[in-house]
């Protein structure tokens, strides 16, 4: 019974809370810019509104365009259920492997990039080209940063990693901190945040993610927006629970779970605040400078492996 509730929480946690994460980031950014900003619940309202809109689909689009939003949303649900959010004891041996997570995310990129090319607009095509370029270069850093903590804890199952790292001594955590620096860069790149992309514009010649999904409207746009929010929260959950897993619940007792939820809320808030600060203090980089940043992420993770 409790396990049933816990699993429902684990599966629904990411899709239910991810719009809130976006709302919080926007709110912090607004405050930093001396604006009042919309309510943190605004992303929910946006999705709700989009779900009720009619849709326009390009005459050039094929079934891939129609299917892609569903595919990427489903992938983020699957990955969301397979990463630790508040409890480290709910490991499954089927989908919680770091490689499975990395490559499932790649599958989502594959479909959204194809959908971008499907309508035959110049925006979509260039968006896809940039998206896959950034994704390809980010993959090394992502894999190596996750591999660092996996090698440190002797397992590549993300739940078990969280469990092992939580009990590790602080002095042995140096590689994890290096790896986290690499991971945070990939987090920004994969979720198309500053300095890689500007998530709040639709008309800028260098846009990546927004260019790809320019032709979407209505329900399908809602699904894509929701899926991107899920993806951001998946990365935050990975970052919070693999590199700083303190406070995560190791058993199903009420106290541990409540503590874990509070701990996760604090860590997620810290992530939101750092993303918002990064977006407020630095400018977007030129596209051909991005490989340098991603290379730094890769090198940091390689150093981390060397330090183990």
């Amino acid at each position: 019974m409790t396990l049933g509730i816990l699993w429902t929480m684990q599966i629904l946690c990411i899709p239910a809370l991810s719009p809130l994460i976006i709302g919080v980031i926007r709110k912090i950014k607004a405050v930093l810019q001396n604006r009042k900003g919309a309510s943190v619940l605004q992303p929910y309202r946006d999705i709700w509104k989009l779900l009720h809109k009619d849709e326009v689909i390009s005459a050039d689009a094929s079934w891939i365009f129609r299917f892609a939003p569903l595919a990427i949303f489903a992938i983020t649900l699957v990955v969301g259920a397979s990463v630790p959010v508040f409890a480290s004891f709910m490991a499954n041996g089927f989908t919680s492997d770091i490689l499975v997570i990395v490559y499932l995310m790649a599958a989502a990129t594959f479909f959204v990039a194809l959908a971008g090319m499907d309508t035959g607009s110049a925006f979509g095509g260039f968006g896809s080209s940039r998206e896959v370029t950034v994704a390809a270069l980010a993959e090394g850093g992502l894999l190596f940063s996750l591999l660092t903590v996996a090698l440190m804890s002797g397992t590549s199952n993300v739940f078990r990693v969280a469990e092992t790292i939580a009990s590790a001594e602080l002095t042995s955590m140096l590689p994890a901190f290096f790896a986290f620096a690499g991971f945070f860069i990939v987090l920004l790149a994969e979720n198309k945040r500053f300095p890689f992309d500007n998530p709040s514009t639709h008309l800028e010649l260098t846009m990546i993610h927004e260019a790809m999904i320019l032709e979407y409207s209505g329900k399908r746009l809602a699904l894509i927006e929701w899926a991107s929010a899920n993806k951001l929260m998946i990365f935050i959950a990975l970052g919070a629970n693999l590199f700083f897993p303190w406070g995560i619940a190791h058993d199903a007792s009420m106290v541990a779970l409540a503590g874990a939820l509070v701990a996760f809320a604090i860590k997620a808030l810290a992530f939101c605040a750092s993303i918002a600060v990064v977006e407020s203090v630095i400018a977007k980089l030129r596209f051909f400078r991005l490989p340098d940043v991603l290379f730094v992420s890769f090198i940091l993770s390689v150093i981390a492996i060397g330090l183990i």
Partner: peptide, 16 residues
Amino acid sequence: ALTGGLALACFVKAVG
């Protein structure tokens, strides 16, 4: 890892 990412890019290009 890099090969995997670039192969994905290449096949997005090919299919697209």
